[in-house]
């Protein structure tokens, strides 16, 4: 069904007046007026439909990825983009919520990529296989930050200990 724009309505009016002037349809004729008004009302109802945004509330299995800073502070209200693996066209873009969650619907198959950015350069770029069909992803192992910190410090000290074996000795005074 053709939908008329405002400019098309104006064109329609001009056409009608041209026709009336040619005496094909008298503007003074009551029947002609009624027909024209009815036609315009019918057309305007189609035009109104074109501007209406409808909604449908449906259950869906969304994926929620929670992002936090290292101190547990939520990565809140920051921009994120979601891609199907191998695609550079985003499936969804949005902002994390107050608790730092990026929520989106995953594609039916395949890995996904989530990129989240804060303007100050914090963020993530991660690939993952999202849980589908109402399943829950296996909880990631709790990050043992103190152990990692100690491991890193141990590595550093071991490296410097190794260097110490090869550095020159100071001459005794």
């Amino acid at each position: 069904m053709k939908r008329f724009s405002v400019s098309e309505f104006h064109a329609l009016f001009r056409w009608r007046e041209r026709v009336a002037r040619r005496k094909l349809l008298s503007p003074q004729s009551g029947r002609g007026k009624r027909t024209t008004i009815a036609l315009l009302l019918a057309l305007s109802s189609f035009s109104a439909l074109a501007h209406e945004v409808r909604h449908a509330i449906e259950p869906a299995n969304a994926v929620s990825v929670r992002l936090t800073f290292a101190d547990g502070q939520p990565f809140a209200f920051e921009a994120f983009e979601v891609y199907a693996a191998g695609s550079d066209k985003p499936l969804a873009v949005g902002r994390t919520d107050a608790q730092g969650r990026a929520v989106f619907l995953p594609p039916e198959t395949g890995e996904m990529r989530l990129r989240a950015f804060a303007a100050d350069g914090h963020g993530v770029d991660l690939k993952f296989d999202p849980p589908r069909g109402g399943t829950t992803a296996a909880a990631p192992a709790a990050e043992d930050r103190p152990a990692k910190l100690m491991f890193g410090a141990g590595l550093l000290l071991a490296l410097f200990g190794l260097i110490q074996l090869f550095v020159r000795r100071k001459k005794p005074l």
Binding site: L157, F160, I163, Q164, V167, R168, R169, K170
Partner: peptide, 9 residues
Amino acid sequence: DEETVPRLA
């Protein structure tokens, strides 16, 4: 030298 390395570490 042997004094700098532990400090640097």
